[in-house]
């Protein structure tokens, strides 16, 4: 039951070249900072990364693009990243852009043990190319749906606020985002947390992810938690 590993380096030590990895976070919010650093240090290459965004030039997954470790990105939005644009235009990087809700749901389906889901997003657009379409009458309404397959990933790397040694996780505010549907959606789920506690210290009613979905957990350190768009208002 004890899922604890020493640190990020140990958590990612068996991630090899060519691995398919899910990375939690939305923008720079709730990204697994420690694990990304460890992957860069390890120098693992030809990765396929499933992540809503690709970070910025000097933070998050953007750092793994600088070191040319990523072969393919599967994302919904990849703005804010000049190196990404350069690699995309030069053909060094493959990119699969898919709707955000479809991305989240393809993670969720994998976690829930379902090989595919039917969604309306993208019907009649270029997203439909090569996909099976079908008309359903659902709750009294007739609509067209696309068959979207669940992801098959080797590793899912998520970041939570608190976790215990059994792998139970709790997220904070909007840092939950993709970390929740990705936790348990791959063969191995690695969770890095801001605070690692003993079993029994987290309120069982407040657990977001039951530990059964998590294989490795460690307490991260030195979180930068960079803000992408700092917007404020003046005090009256």
């Amino acid at each position: 039951m004890n899922k604890v590993v020493a640190d990020a380096a140990e958590a990612v030590k068996d991630i090899n070249d060519g691995a398919v990895i899910m990375l939690g976070g939305f923008g720079l919010c709730g990204i697994p900072e420690n694990s990304i650093s460890a992957l860069i240090k390890k120098g693992v290459k030809n990765l396929t990364c499933i992540s809503n965004n690709a970070g910025v030039d000097d933070f998050g997954i953007g750092l793994m693009l600088q070191t040319r470790q990523v072969k393919k990105m599967i994302s919904s939005y990849v703005g804010e990243n000049a190196e990404f644009e350069r690699q995309l235009l030069s053909g060094e990087l493959e990119v699969d852009l898919i709707p955000q809700g479809t991305l989240a749901t393809r993670c969720m389906a994998a976690k829930y043990g379902m090989p595919a889901v039917w969604v309306r997003a993208g019907f009649g657009t270029e997203i439909q190319n090569g996909k099976e379409a079908r008309e359903f009458v659902f709750q009294g309404e007739k609509n067209n749906y696309l068959l979207e397959e669940a992801f098959s990933a080797d590793y899912s790397i998520v970041k939570a606020w608190k976790g215990d040694k059994f792998g139970n996780l709790i997220f904070r505010k909007t840092a939950r985002n993709f970390n929740d549907p990705m936790a348990g959606a791959a063969k191995i789920t690695i969770a890095e947390v801001e605070e690692l506690v003993e079993p029994g210290e987290l309120d069982p009613n407040q657990i977001h992810i039951p530990g059964i979905f998590v294989q490795r957990i460690f307490q991260g350190k030195s979180y930068e938690k960079r803000i992408e768009q700092r917007t404020t208002r003046k005090r009256a």
């Binding site: 939305f26 923008g27 720079l28 919010c29 709730g30 809503n52 955000q100 809700g101 989240a104 749901t105 993670c107 969720m108 606020w161 997220f171 904070r172 505010k173 909007t174 840092a175 939950r176 985002n177 993709f178 970390n179 929740d180 549907p181 977001h208 938690k225 960079r226 803000i227 992408e228 768009q229 700092r230 917007t231 404020t232 208002r233 003046k234 005090r235």
Partner: peptide, 29 residues
């Protein structure tokens, strides 16, 4: 307000925001 930004609390445009009484958080799926 300036100085009260929370990196764990952003909107879909990645801007820092606040919650109101009655706010609910959930995952993207």
């Amino acid at each position: 307000f300036e100085g009260e930004e929370d990196p764990d609390l952003i909107n879909a445009g990645k801007q820092t925001i606040t919650e109101i009484p009655g706010t609910a958080y959930f995952d993207s799926a």
